[in-house]
């Protein structure tokens, strides 16, 4: 099976103690390593205002992970774990690799097209300015 890239975001209650957050994060990491996934990125976005109320909270702490894995079961496992946690009020996993593939394709296409087109040498206005400036004093001097 091919490798797939996923984004995992979850929101933790703002008033959660540090240990509990650590527990959640480590459980995510643990599940990843156990099921043969690889965490490419792990970010903490801090406490942010939510666009709408979630479980009666206006704010939440965002945690972001990017996970590369061969096994889809890992995602179901992660979601199950997050669902069970009381401190996690919202989570979302999104498959990214198809979007990235499309992005790469388009970028390559654009680069190819740019390479095919002869590049115009940039006009040099810098030398023009001194020349234009120079005649003026001469004219003034002559008149």
């Amino acid at each position: 099976m091919e490798e797939r890239l996923y984004d995992l975001i979850f929101i933790v209650r703002p008033a959660t103690p540090e240990d509990e957050i650590k527990k959640v994060v480590s459980s995510v990491e643990h599940a990843c390593t156990e099921k043969g996934g690889k965490i490419e990125k792990a970010e903490h976005w801090g406490t942010r205002k939510l666009a709408y109320k979630v479980a009666k909270h206006r704010e939440g702490m965002y945690y972001y992970h990017q996970i590369r894995t061969n096994h889809g079961e890992l995602i179901t496992e992660l979601e199950r774990r997050l669902r069970v946690q009381d401190s996690v009020i919202k989570y979302m996993t999104i498959r990214l690799d198809e979007d990235l593939k499309r992005q790469k394709k388009l970028t390559d296409k654009r680069e190819k097209r740019a390479a095919r087109r002869p590049r115009r040498p940039a006009a040099t206005p810098a030398p023009a300015a001194p020349i234009a400036a120079a005649p003026a004093p001469e004219q003034q001097a002559a008149s």
Binding site: I9, I11, L50, A51, Y52, K53, V54, R58, G60, K90, M92, I94
Partner: peptide, 18 residues
């Protein structure tokens, strides 16, 4: 729509609730 799902953007009309 993805951003809405994770509360980065509001769903239409939810501004009144806040």
């Amino acid at each position: 729509k993805r951003a809405r799902n994770i509360a980065l953007l509001p769903f239409a009309g939810s501004a009144a609730g806040s």
